[in-house]
Design a protein around this nucleic acid. Structure first.
Lengths: 206, 206
DNA sequence: TGTACATCAGTGAACGCGCGTTCACTGATGTAC
DNA sequence: TGTACATCAGTGAACGCGCGTTCACTGATGTAC
């Protein structure tokens, strides 16, 4: 057993990266603790030095996903005026993220991780991503994690429609080519048009 | 082995009912082929006389869910004028269904069943529920299952926002009491207001 | 500067588990003549 | 009306599987004196 077999120092990060890779390429069913350990070249039991159990490892991966969404929102929202164009941009980015990481996106909202929704890391990452949207709609500093999402109806509604759209898209409920940017853009634009202008426009006696 | 042990005649229905019960009460993780067989009082292998495999059994359960949604839509849409009030009503009913059957709702869109999306029974049940909505928005007989959902942007958008909302609700992303009708109604109303009137109203420079 | 020792982060063997599925089988039922 | 027989719908034993987790362990590292 050579010196470098111990205290590799980056096993935790390695586990998360391996988990993300396996999740991306083969889906949640393939994402077992043993598989991830194998990928990193470590005994299954070694994982317990870094995570309480399998669910905690999944939660760390999910938290990473929320952080990516937060980054994307920050880039699209920060310093931008409250125009419909910004919302359209966020919608596109959001859907592109989901299209590029369908399994990660599903995991983020999966019940396999729901026990950790109150876990500091995952909970905070989730709150932050919603908070960025709230602050844009209602003014910087508006977001209070103690409030229910319904207190911020605009932010809540955008999230709802994006979430539904993302899942329909990655679950194959809309016939389209997920890998084509233009297809994803078109989906986002079409639906966000209606969302921004109001579905009543499609009704006879609005 | 008594006479009634053979040709019970309703084993298939029994399996589906048992599966729905287990799913409702204990979730998808508990929903194994062996468990369902046990509930019905039949050998695990007997299930294969009625379903190709576990996934096919799940697909049958999911199809049943779609049929319930179709019924609910039919009741709310049929013969109704194209008014916002009807949309609001459907939204409430849709969310009530998801709130009452969270595990079933999740299964309907789960990847554990996605291999059967093209299965006649499940696929048709799904198409029908979307078709009812399409026919209301675009006129009776408008729906063509061969078209992509994007061809019907209004129906698609309502479905997206309801789907997202339902999942956020049952996945605990909105702080609320799922068992209270008024809470669910309020969630539906708040978000559908924005959806129907247009989110641009919340923007400064709309 | 050495040394004793606590702690950290690994190992690998073992556990029990329930699962989906296959198999050869058999009794009950329905049908053709 | 009987009878031969195909088919249907069960049985129960067995398969191999990979899983999450626990355990006693040990070598490497860092720290106190």
């Amino acid at each position: 057993m050579s010196r470098k077999d111990y205290h590799k120092g980056n096993v935790r990060e390695g586990l998360i990266e391996a988990a993300e890779r396996v999740l991306h390429d083969e889906g949640l069913v393939a994402l077992s603790l043993r598989r991830v350990a194998r990928e990193v070249g470590v005994a299954p039991s070694a994982v317990y030095n870094h995570f309480k159990n399998r669910e905690a490892l999944l939660a760390a991966v999910a938290a990473d996903g929320y952080r990516q969404i937060a980054e994307l929102e920050l880039a699209a929202y920060s310093g931008q005026s409250k125009s419909a164009a910004v919302v359209r941009g966020v919608a596109r980015d959001y859907l592109h993220f989901a299209a590029a990481n369908p399994n990660l996106y599903r995991l983020m909202f999966s019940h396999d991780v729901v026990g950790y929704r109150s876990d500091p890391e995952l909970g905070q990452a989730g709150d932050r991503s919603f908070g960025i949207s709230v602050d844009w709609w209602y003014g910087s500093g508006s977001y209070d994690p103690g409030q229910t999402a319904l207190e911020y109806p605009y932010a809540m509604s955008v999230w709802a429609i994006l979430h539904g759209l993302a899942l329909q898209m990655i679950d194959g409920l809309v016939t389209m080519d997920l890998s084509k940017r233009e297809s994803v853009d078109k989906l986002a634009d079409t639906v966000m048009d209606i969302f921004l202008e109001g579905a009543s426009l499609g009704l006879v006696d609005k």
